[in-house]
Amino acid sequence: MRYARSILKWMLSGVQTAQVAVCVAGLIITTLLVFIEVLNRYWLHIEGMWFSDLALYCFIFFMLVAAAVTTWREGHVAVDFFRERIVRGKPTRAAIYRVFLVVLSIAVLCVLLPVAYQFMLRAMKYPEYGTLVRWFNMSWLQITLFVALAFVLGHLLVIARRDISDLIRNCLARSRSKRE
């Protein structure tokens, strides 16, 4: 049991590292492609009109993956004003509230996933090749949308599991302190 858990943990951190690596690489490649396009216009003059197209494809790809990264870093913006008022100094209530929000997020995303899945199926049915980057199948990007959202869901589930066990620990601690 402990063994299985450490394998899971190891896999999770592997997924996270891979996502970050893909994103950083994408960011740098996109930047360089656009930069090279400018160099090309004035100095290099190589046959490279496809730079800006490829840059956009790279960009879309890493932006989608970045959505997953931001999710496990819990970097999405929210208005915390009200929440802070009602949970201040009440750890159990705060834990319940956190579970509530993450479950709500998961519910919303679960409605979208089948739609993104359909979007992916259509993309696979009708492959769309770049005009100047003719080997690039843009359907890959549309498939990435679904995959990235699936990862977002995965990360939300991990967060939910953490928050729920926090909540349970909180409740146990409270009942213990009551008994004492």
């Binding site: 960011l27 932006m63 989608l64 970045a66 959505a67 931001t70 970097g75 999405h76």
Partner: peptide
């Protein structure tokens, strides 16, 4: 710098 940029961009993607 890359990390900070990424977190912001990922937020912008979904937003």
């Amino acid at each position: 710098a890359c990390q900070t940029t990424l977190t912001t961009l990922g937020m912008i993607t979904l937003l």
